[in-house]
Design a protein around this nucleic acid. Structure first.
Lengths: 115, 115
DNA sequence: TCAGCATATAACCGAGTGGTTATAACCACA
DNA sequence: TGTGGTTATAACCACTCGGTTATATGCTGA
């Protein structure tokens, strides 16, 4: 079940990004998302099935059987983790900018008083 | 090079995620970030140099020489792209929830009037 | 000019990844 | 009950990727 997996590890593949996107707008059967991805990326059904498996094993999708179909539902955590990571970086970046600003202000003040 | 590269492709590696994090809080020389990452991940200097190269070729960092050091500066776009992607997913997800809600409301209404 | 630090590249390698085709497992239905 | 539709797995393969060691390149200071 490879549960220590970071969302960014899983999303480092365009096919899986597309799958997440498709499932973000609603539950769909494996066949539905597969057909889309197969045609968009020109890959086979088993190839898509393996990507779905990666998403499953990372815990980012849940599956429920419905007749002979298997309905995939996205787990919100994949989106949350992505946002969290972006926020981490953004926070550091802003702190950096703040630090730069105060540094510049200090410089100006010193130059003024040095007059 | 390889400018069509998505931020999520680049960030699909823990070492590069850490490098971005380090550089998000301020410009640093290759040596500085390398020493941190080398010890944290137990890898060699050339290994880190290759990851820095990936970041460079994706256009997510800029380098300026300073004496014999090379100072790396993060390009904000990597953070922006990450946020954008998270927002894409989040928007779809919210639309999905909205759709579900109105669907439920419609169901309730119909069940009521069917009485 | 030479020694040494800082960094990048070269050449190589093993493991992992993403694809393929073939097939299995499961379900619905005539 | 067997046929067709749906999905997952098996077995395999080529290539990429991330690591290694060795070396080149470039700057600095004695």
């Amino acid at each position: 079940m490879l549960r220590g997996m970071h969302a960014l590890d899983v999303l480092g593949d365009p096919v899986r990004r597309r799958l997440v996107e498709l499932l973000a707008s609603g539950d769909q059967s494996a066949g539905e998302v597969s057909r889309v991805v197969e045609s968009e990326f020109g890959i086979s059904q088993p190839a898509v099935a393996k990507h779905l498996r990666v998403l499953r094993e990372a815990g980012f999708v849940r599956v429920r059987p419905e007749g002979s179909r298997r309905i995939y539902r996205l787990d919100e955590r994949v989106i949350t983790q992505l946002q969290d990571q972006a926020d981490r970086y953004r926070t550091l970046w802003n702190q950096r900018l703040d630090a730069l600003e105060t540094e510049i202000a200090r410089g100006k003040r010193e130059r003024r008083t040095a007059q």
